Computed example of a mutant assay.
Amino acid sequence: MSYDRYVAICKPLHYGTLLGSRACVHMAAAAWASGFLDALLHTANTFSLPLCKGNALDQFFCEIPQILKLSCPDAYLREAGLLIFGAKVFFVCFVFILLSYVQIFRAVLRIPSEQGWHKAFSTCLPHLAVVSLFISTAMFAYLKPPSISSPSLDLVVSVLYSVVPPVVNPLIYSMRNQELRDALRKLMAG
C-alpha cells in the first residue's frame, strides 16, 4: 500500500509502468512467500517444542508467546531464533513503509495548493492509521515486560492487534466516500 501511494503521489506519470500487473504479482508473491516461510518455520518449531507446563493456553488462539510460557526452559533459544527472523522481516517492512511515507510527505509539502495537500493526505492517512494501530499494539504485545503481563491484559492486547485493524480497515477507507459520510452524519443527527 505504501509503495502504491508513493508511486501515485511522487511519480504519477510513471504509475502504469512502475505498478503494472507484473510488479503487483511480484509484490504479492514476496508478501505471500515471506509470510508462508515465517508461518512454516514457527509451525514446525511449535510442534517440536516439549511442553512442560501443561497444554492449556490463557488465550483464545495459539500465539507464540503463550506457547513459550508452556514450553520447557531449554526450548526457548530455538524459538528466539525464529522470533529474530520474524523481527527482521517486520523491520524491513517497517523501514520500507517509513521511507515511502517520508518521500510522500516531502512531495506533498511541495504542493502549492491546499486542495492538493488535502487530496494527498486523504489517500495516505487512512493507510497510515491502520498500519500504526497494528504496529503499536503488536509491539506492545510482544515487547512489554513480563512484570506487567497478566492473562486479561494479554487477551485485550491480542484482540487489539489481531481483530481491530481488519475490522476498522474498511471503515477507515470508506470514510473517504462522501455518500457514506453523509449517511453517517444523518445517523448521528437523527
Rank of each mutant, 00 (worst) to 15 (best):
A56Q: 14
A23K: 00
L57M: 13
P50H: 14
I97A: 12
A87Y: 11
A75N: 07
L41M: 04
S136D: 10
V7T: 01
C10G: 02
E179I: 11
I97C: 14
Q66N: 15
A44K: 03
S147N: 10
I97V: 15
L109E: 08
G190K: 09
P166T: 07
R176G: 12
L18W: 00
A30Y: 03
N55W: 11
L18D: 00
H26M: 05
T123F: 11
R5E: 09
P165T: 02
P146N: 15
G116I: 01
R22Q: 02
F96A: 15
A129C: 11
L143T: 08
E79L: 06
K11T: 05
T17G: 01
L155F: 14
A39D: 10
M1I: 09
P170I: 03
R5D: 10
L70W: 08
V25R: 01
R185M: 11
I148S: 07
I172Y: 04
S150L: 14
L153A: 13
L109G: 09
R106I: 05
C62F: 15
Y161W: 10
T46F: 08
V156G: 14
L49H: 07
L82E: 04
A56H: 13
L180Y: 08
C93L: 14
S150Q: 14
F85Q: 07
L99V: 08
P165V: 02
I97T: 13
S147Y: 11
S152F: 15
G35E: 02
S34N: 06
S48L: 05
D182M: 09
L70E: 08
T137V: 11
Q178G: 09
Y173G: 07
A80S: 10
S162V: 10
L143D: 03
L160S: 12
L18G: 00
N45H: 04
L133N: 03
A28R: 04
F140G: 12
S149A: 15
S113H: 02
L184P: 03
S158Y: 09
H26K: 03
V168I: 12
I172M: 07
T17Y: 02
V108G: 00
L13Y: 05
G35T: 01
A56N: 13
V7Y: 00
A138S: 10
L77W: 12
P146T: 15
R5Y: 04
L125I: 10
Y161P: 02
V25A: 01
V157C: 12
V89H: 08
M1N: 11
D38Y: 10
S152D: 15
L82G: 04
G81T: 04
L180E: 06
I64M: 03
K69H: 05
H42R: 07
Q103L: 11
S71L: 02
F60G: 14
F105R: 05
L37G: 02
Y142C: 09
F60W: 15
F36L: 07
A33D: 00
S48T: 07
Q178E: 13
L125D: 03
Y76V: 12
F85P: 03
A138Y: 05
M27V: 05
Y3H: 08
F91I: 12
T43R: 06
A141F: 15
F91Y: 13
C62G: 15
V108Q: 00
L49D: 05
M175P: 02
C62W: 14
F91E: 13
K119H: 09
L70G: 08
V156A: 15
P12C: 00
F60A: 14
D4P: 06
V164C: 12
S132E: 09
L98C: 12
K88P: 11
